[in-house]
Each structure stands twice: as C-alpha cells, then as structure tokens.
Amino acid sequence: MTDQLQETSTSGRVEHTLAAIWRGGDDVSLESVPVPPLEPGEVLVRVTLATVCGSDRHTVSGRRAQPCPSILGHETVGHIVAFGGDDELQSVDGQQLHVGQRVIWSETLPCGTCDRCVAGVTAKCRTVRKAGHEAYDSSWALSGGYAEHVLLPRGMPVAVVDDDVSDALAAPAACATATVMAVIERAMPIAGKRLVVIGAGMLGLTALAAAADADASSVTAVDPAAERREMAKQFGATTVVASIGEVEQCDVLIELSGKAAALQEGIGKLDVGGVAIFAGSVAPDGDIAVDPESVVRRHLSFRGVHNYEPRHLIQALDFLQRSNGRFPWTDLVAEPVPLDRIGDLLTGAPGSKPRYSIAP
C-alpha cells in the first residue's frame, strides 16, 4: 500500500506521501497527502525512524494544547531526498548538506531576527514554529515525523548523523537528548557535585548518564517505579530511591517528572549554593511554595529550561557517540512498528520501554 501511495512524477519528484493525521481525540488516520514543490532553501527528508515522545501522547489525551488536525512527531531521523533551489545549505556544525545524508533536525524553527533570537534564545523566538506541532492546514503541513516524508523549511537547524549512531539513538536526540544537553548546560558546573534527578523516564535516564559523563561526584535517581530505578543503575545512577524524601542533601536538583510535589520537596534538599533546574513541568500540576528567606540564606538558584538551541543537537549526537559503549542506549527504544500502528502507540497503555518507535 505504501508504494502505491508514494506517487512520483516522471521527473522523480515525490508528489504524494503517506502520513498519519491526528484529527482530535484518538482519531489518527493514514492518508495520502500532497508534497508541495520545494521552495528555495527547503529540504525533503524520507523518514527512517520516528520515536514517540510523551508530549504527543499528552496531546492526544487532551493534556496538552495542539493545532488540529496535524501530523505529530518531532523525534525523527531520515535521509535527505531533495532540495528546493540551488542553495548551498549547511548543517548546524558547518557540513554541506547533500542528498542521501542521514539527518535529524531541531524541534524549533526560529525566525532568527527577533530580539530573543538575536540574544541567543531561539527556542523562545517570538514567532517560533515547531516540528510536529503545526496545523495540517497551515503553510507547513508536513511538519511531523509520523509520515513517510517531512518537509524542512528554510532556516531549520539540521545535524548530520554519523554512521556509528543508530536510528534508535538518533531519533530521540532531536528532542529528549538535546533537551537534556540544554538542562546540563544550565546546571554547570557539575563536576564534583552531588546531583539528583527526579524522574527516570527517557529524559531522566539521559540526564543521569550526562551527569555521570560530566563527572558528578554522585548521581541519585528518584522514581517510584522499581523497573525504572533498576534501569537507572545502568545509566550512571550511583544511588536509586523511590522518593525524594530519601535524599539527604544535594548540590544540583534536576526535575524531569513534572510532579510539583516532588519538586517542592526537592528544593528543600538543596545545600548552600544549590541549583534547581525546572524542566519537567510542561503541563499544569499545581503550584509550589518558596520561602524567600531560605532562598536568600542558602544562596539558591532556580532555572527553567524548555526546548533547546541548535548547538544542543550537535552536543546530543556527540554525547551519544562517545557514550554508546558505556550506556545501553538502544534498550530505551522498542522495536519499530509500521506507520499504521501509530494510533495504537499514541493511545495505548505505556510499554516497558521509555520510547515506542515507528518505521514508515
């Protein structure tokens, strides 16, 4: 069926592709959709693997606002199949792009000219567009990875994936791993520090490994799930506990569970000069109370992280490459299923691994 729906003209241009369109609730339908002619600076990528981020499951369940209908999916790896125009396009690390390269791309597409972009905070661009988050009836219909092809607009940060980084490592790098690189950067310096990570899901496990890689003196994983605590031991955790109440003190607290109560208790565990990174609270989960006097007397710092910058894509791939033999990264991603199963992955019960995947 896929070969029949992926129609091309006599010139070889891809004219139609197969995509899973989310139309609200648990309605996800596979449809043959048109691929527009490429404009100068645009890139067409054939998807080889896409992993399912928890935020997409939140979208389908109604916990998170998202334009609808849309093609979801923002953890994606694929091969370049075509360019628009004759532009000499480059990756974020300066490599010239060409057809056949395996690439990942940023979750965010910034304008590059607003005050936030000029200040280096492109993730918070005033007119930011996001891969896998755009309306199907917008000018960027093919923005999501749950499809056979993705169209990358002009200006999209792209990173080339080396041959020794598998698809299962590369796809999550476009969201989970790159986000963790931004988190670790905000938490620096880490070497010699006592670090605690709340939540041992995909981001939490990656953060544990990154903290170990950055030479933290101790790395504690906090998660109520016994299977996640066991997995944390394989990703750099020197200590695993079921609740933050079991932690004595720490220098760096990284919150990735999205649970306000855990964050509230975790702040109380920070030693003098401690730093708390808020990164998991991407959906409402209640307020926390902060005692200003305690913050002053303990010299505490609170920092928020949401999304990441283009440099973090490169850092993510470099980190995965050098740590591939140290941590069992491929154990985090389930074997891929066909694109027509994506509806089940978005609405079904969570599996035993942090990431589902599809191979269109």
Rank of each mutant, 00 (worst) to 15 (best):
M1I: 13
T2W: 04
L5K: 09
L5T: 10
Q6L: 15
S11A: 15
R13Q: 15
E15Y: 14
H16I: 10
P37R: 09
V43K: 08
R46Y: 13
G54H: 04
S55H: 08
R57K: 12
R63H: 03
A65G: 07
L72P: 06
G73Y: 01
E75Q: 02
G78Q: 01
G84N: 05
E88M: 11
V103E: 07
T108R: 02
T108H: 10
L109F: 08
G112L: 09
G112M: 11
G112D: 07
C114Q: 09
C114L: 07
D115G: 11
R116D: 07
G120R: 13
V121A: 15
K124Q: 15
K124Y: 14
C125Q: 06
K130Q: 14
Y136F: 10
D137L: 07
L142F: 09
G145N: 03
H149Q: 12
V150E: 03
L152I: 10
L152N: 07
P153G: 07
A159K: 04
D164L: 06
A168N: 06
A170M: 09
P172F: 01
C175N: 03
T177H: 05
T177Q: 00
T177N: 10
R186G: 09
A191E: 07
R194D: 15
L195E: 02
L195C: 10
I198L: 02
A200C: 12
G201M: 00
G204C: 05
T206P: 09
A211H: 04
A212F: 12
V219I: 10
E227K: 12
E230R: 14
E230F: 08
E230M: 13
M231H: 11
F235D: 04
A237S: 03
T239D: 14
V240Q: 04
G245F: 04
G245L: 01
V247M: 05
V247T: 12
C250Y: 03
V252M: 03
I254Y: 06
E265D: 12
K269N: 01
K269G: 02
V272Q: 13
V275H: 13
A276G: 05
G280Q: 02
G280P: 01
V282M: 08
P284N: 02
D285H: 02
D287E: 13
A289T: 08
V290F: 07
P292N: 08
V296Q: 11
R298G: 07
H299R: 13
H299M: 15
L300R: 12
F302H: 09
G304Y: 03
G304K: 04
V305R: 00
Y308A: 06
I314S: 14
L317I: 11
R322P: 12
S323A: 15
N324I: 13
N324H: 15
G325D: 10
G325R: 06
V333L: 06
V333W: 00
V333H: 01
E335I: 11
P336K: 00
V337E: 03
I342Q: 02
G343S: 12
G343P: 03
G343N: 10
S352P: 11
R355I: 00
P360G: 05
